[in-house]
Design a protein around this nucleic acid. Sequence first.
DNA 1: TTGAAAGCGGTACCAC
DNA 2: GTGGTACCGCTTTCAA
Lengths: 332, 332
Amino acid sequence: MNIYDIARLSGVSIATVSRVMNGSDKVSGKTRRKVLSVIQQEGYTPNLLAQGLGQGTMHAIGIMVPEISDLFMSSCVSYLESLLLSHGYNYVLSSSGFAQDKKEACARALLSRQIDALLLVGSTYAGHEKSDTDFVRSAAAQVPVFIINGSVEGENIYSSVSDDKKAVYSVVTSMIGSGRKRILFLSDSRSYSANEKLEGYEQALLASSLPLLGELRMHVPSGIHDVRDLLLQYRNLSFDAVLAANDSIAVGAVKYACARGLRIPEDLVIVGYNNSTFAECCEPELSSIDNGLKEICEKTVQRLMRVLGGDHDVEKDVTVPCRLVRRNTTDF
Amino acid sequence: MNIYDIARLSGVSIATVSRVMNGSDKVSGKTRRKVLSVIQQEGYTPNLLAQGLGQGTMHAIGIMVPEISDLFMSSCVSYLESLLLSHGYNYVLSSSGFAQDKKEACARALLSRQIDALLLVGSTYAGHEKSDTDFVRSAAAQVPVFIINGSVEGENIYSSVSDDKKAVYSVVTSMIGSGRKRILFLSDSRSYSANEKLEGYEQALLASSLPLLGELRMHVPSGIHDVRDLLLQYRNLSFDAVLAANDSIAVGAVKYACARGLRIPEDLVIVGYNNSTFAECCEPELSSIDNGLKEICEKTVQRLMRVLGGDHDVEKDVTVPCRLVRRNTTDF
DNA sequence: TTGAAAGCGGTACCAC
DNA sequence: GTGGTACCGCTTTCAA
């Protein structure tokens, strides 16, 4: 059932059917009613591909995430989806994984679907070496690219990050202020945001004249139990506070404390990151740094719409503040 | 940069370029090399819309979920995505929410994007009244529809469910066998699968000649703390076991036990559902019924491919067994 | 092995 | 108001 069928059945031309479908006011009430009734009867749905081809746009934004089953990513997509929809845009989602070549292939695939803009979710897309982000710049040659939680330099590339460095700096400083001396920093990634967090941590120690100890800066695997087990292995490593780069790592630290019979927060202060549901699952419940994801998404989509609207002076980089959500694992 | 440009730059016709792009063997090595080099140089990417229009298919499957930020849904999408990709199919995701009219609109939108099949994830799509699923049948008039975790009657509709009734029956029977007398059933939904679980619960009680008490069959809100608070309100309701319809509810029960100072599992046995990461976050860690999601996804995609391949006798309904993953909240 | 041309299902401009 | 028609970019016969 296509527009030609509807036209024939209504006794009008396809141009008129098209007008009716698009709510043009240049159609007589009588004709409109006739066409609408046929459309209704036949259950006609226009072919969006043809429409997209004709208009040169699908009114769609490509969204790329490394892994959709990650709670952080899926919440982000959820926010983005409703924001985009409210602006009359569709989206096409694709999980790229973390491998460089997959990311590149994923971007190409998205671009070939005629998206109007590309949205990269996650600091993994900020890469490490300049060449890691070449694909971002080359995508930006076609459509504007927006990065959430990461920053990439380049023409037509816009980024939105949360102020992780500052947030960690502030929390670690509070920890020190409340008497903690050996603060463990746990991270499972070497992404842009992981680095920012690490820097905040180091700067806080420096500012308080505490030594930067390599042993207190740990790279851990991603599973809860893996984190616990790794910590248990280091029997002679002592620490009185933990700052984790995400909640799941922090839950691992809670498990460790349970296993060692440590009281939280008396013996061990633990702070997580992202303020996800995980933070509320454990016992005691985790204090966690809220990275302002919702606000980042809002600002991103807002700027995206301005760019698509032809606005030429949209801020290229936006930083959103984080805030510590206090629960029971913190005593400051 | 389109196929005409490439053709002109290569000094061949668009038909030849098309052949090269599609790896046809009816192109001379020389021509192929020439065209490929131009394609490479210009960074040409074919327009998938045009391709889809021409072929009458985007090789894409529409996936509809109520809410993508739900851990269960996003894991499911993650499985489905990699399975579909491995079969050379794309997908288009859309969150429908739980409202009936949104579901219908969502299905229409997906259909208009020329998907080759529709995949509904979640028992919410099984509806309650026959009319709730009319939209499923009407979608099935266009493309085959597959439902994950729910069952809908109709031509061209295929469903895959886990054997929730049996799983709950078996677990509740074990609870009774180990001496539990007052088993609380907690659910936050009235979906198809929620009903199946409830039936399993009731049948187990009946089989053991235990009374079916309305007070032990509770409908709860979805938040962890809401569940805890609700349970705390019923100070004079006694129960020695909990079977929750999902892990997040079960974690709420754990919180309740903590608040009341109850020992788990001595005073209270708790079993969750879905075996998600939530089950591992709390303390003690939750035993949880694994609903075999991965297997469901695999079987679904496998049957989907057969249907798309023209196979006419594909099983319409498939049931996958669940299995209890034992952790510390269970003493049987 | 290659090219010409007719679709695919819409949009949008231009006449009438 | 309405209809005719030239695109949009690719696939796919059919001839050559």
